[in-house]
């Protein structure tokens, strides 16, 4: 092999870069986020599986429907419970701790929603 002095360090650098997540502060995979669920309510506005993957779409739909189409503020769950279609007055009424609910998963997956650029967190509102 020719050019060992350059090629071997370059290969080691390549392997090191490629395996970064395996050695650099990779943490513990068992450390899953546990968003705190509300104690007083058992039913959300949509099934859990849908809320897990698509809650942001639902929020966008509410905004477009209410602010742009003049839609109703009141929604009904599958079991007929009425709720307010609103982030601050609806979602945060049950999920009242942003840090323990929203942030748990968002921080875990590096998602930074811009909801709170305008909306107030429950604590701040009080």
């Amino acid at each position: 092999m020719y050019g060992k002095g350059r090629i071997i360090p370059a290969l080691i650098l390549f392997l090191g870069l490629m395996t970064t997540p395996m050695w650099y502060k990779s943490g513990d995979a068992g450390k899953m986020p546990k968003p705190e669920k509300p104690k007083d309510y058992t039913e959300c506005v949509a099934p859990t599986a849908y809320m897990r993957t698509s809650h942001m779409v639902l929020l966008n739909e509410w905004r477009d429907d209410i602010l742009r189409e003049g839609g109703s503020r009141v929604g009904k769950t599958a079991n007929g419970t009425e709720y307010v279609r609103s982030l601050q007055n609806g979602c945060m009424k049950c999920h009242n701790d942003k840090k323990k609910f929203c942030d748990a998963c968002h921080n875990y997956t590096s998602v930074k929603p811009y909801c709170w650029d305008c909306h107030l967190q429950p604590k701040e509102a009080m």
């Binding site: 997540p21 502060k25 990779s26 943490g27 513990d28 995979a29 450390k31 875990y108 590096s110």
Partner: peptide, 9 residues
Amino acid sequence: HLRLFMDPI
């Protein structure tokens, strides 16, 4: 995609 492989990110 590193956000899916590292913690802290």
